[in-house]
């Protein structure tokens, strides 16, 4: 089952074009990874899919609907959730209030209590700090809160933009453990990562983005074995 179908996306900032006809598909229940070097357009693609920047050409189909012209908040209401680069928490609000904001979409409110318990099970440290202002949490805790917040809305698709950025090696391990557990629970996810090694290790499917174009795609196991990939991204 195809959860999301992105076709021939072209977009950029101002006059500068970043993406030159990018297409990808997310299979339901799969973890799909998008890798690429700095400036290849990974974040631009996510933002276009989310609607934060308009697509100049191409379409985004999600849950069987064309959402290309819909506002970001409408897409979020429909179940397309993005955990943005750099966390973007509500630093003035408490941990609990951040989670409440995550549960804004209508269908998320009914199961709020249940979701909170599930979140605390996944992230025990957050339960300890539930009344603390988000800006005072440590880097790792903030990353967890960012993911937790995204999960509170019962997303159909979860998109994570560079979640390991700025985390210590120990916290990165921790992070990928969480991602693995979410995958086991059956969430459809799109992961954009610099840490190619760990991303490919945990994914089902992978895309390689270079200069705004999809260079390589395939099952993660196979992409990991490719000579060009190993040379360019795994330092071998």
């Amino acid at each position: 089952m195809i959860a999301m179908d992105v076709k021939e996306i072209e977009s950029g900032y101002g006059e500068v074009q970043i993406l030159w006809g990018v297409s990808l598909q997310l299979q339901e229940g799969h973890l799909t990874t998008l890798v690429g070097s700095n400036g290849s357009g990974k974040t631009t693609l996510l933002r276009t899919v989310m609607g934060l920047i308009p697509a100049w050409k191409g379409t985004v189909n999600f849950d069987g609907q064309d959402v290309t012209r819909l506002s970001p908040h409408t897409r979020a209401q429909m179940g397309l959730v993005m955990i943005p680069e750099g966390r973007q928490l509500f630093t003035d609000l408490t941990v609990m209030e951040n989670l409440e904001m995550g549960a804004t979409p209508g269908r998320a409110r009914a199961g709020f209590q249940r979701n909170v318990e599930w979140i605390f099970d996944l992230f025990p440290r957050l339960e300890e700090r539930v009344r603390q202002v988000a800006g005072t949490l440590s880097g790792g805790e903030q990353q967890m809160l960012a993911i937790a917040r995204g999960l509170m809305s019962n997303p159909q698709i979860l998109m994570l933009d560079e979640p390991s950025l700025g985390l210590s090696p120990l916290l990165v391990l921790n992070l990928f453990e969480v991602i693995r557990r979410l995958k086991e629970q059956g969430h459809t996810m799109l992961l954009v990562e610099q840490n190619v090694q760990m991303a490919l290790a945990v994914s089902d499917y992978a895309y390689v983005l270079s200069n705004g174009r999809i260079e390589i795609e395939g099952e993660a196991k196979r992409v990991r074995e490719m000579e060009s990939v190993r040379k360019a991204y795994l330092g071998l």
Partner: peptide
């Protein structure tokens, strides 16, 4: 909830949009 969403938007409008807040 509405009041908190106002504070959220004041804090970080882009993130609020991603949460599904109009």
């Amino acid at each position: 909830r509405v009041g908190k969403s106002i504070r959220a938007v004041a804090n970080n409008r882009a993130a609020a949009e991603l949460m599904g807040i109009n």
